[in-house]
């Protein structure tokens, strides 16, 4: 396990938010794929279009979910680093005070 850390919480938080913000765009793509329909005809690609539509909208939905999940995880990590840093700072401050620094 590595023990060298270098984290910029502000930038990390912004990166997480930027990734999460992609989700609605992916949802719009999914919605566009899901609406693909053809009116009835005897010679038609409707069945194959249906297969394509279902699988690709499902895949797009999964990508949207993954981006949302990942973006939030990054933002949560940034928050966790910041909170940890703040808690540690307070503890060190109290320790210094107790030591009469």
């Amino acid at each position: 396990m590595r023990d060298d850390y270098e984290v910029s919480t502000g930038v990390l938080s912004a990166a997480g938010a930027a990734i999460t913000a992609l989700t609605p765009s992916v949802a719009a793509v999914e919605s566009g794929i899901k609406t693909q329909r053809l009116p009835g005809a005897e010679i038609t690609v409707a069945a194959e279009l249906g297969l394509f539509r279902d699988v690709w909208s499902d895949a797009t939905h999964a990508v949207g979910n993954a981006l949302d999940y990942f973006g939030r995880a990054v933002s949560d990590a940034a928050t966790a680093y910041r909170v940890t840093d703040e808690v540690a700072a307070v503890r060190f401050q109290r320790m210094q005070e107790r030591l009469g620094g």
Partner: peptide
């Protein structure tokens, strides 16, 4: 979306340069 994600990744890397 793909381009915007690619754009966000260097930001992510720079913010989290080190660590598991």
């Amino acid at each position: 979306v793909s381009e915007r994600l690619s754009g966000a990744l260097p930001q992510l890397r720079s913010a989290w340069a080190q660590g598991n």
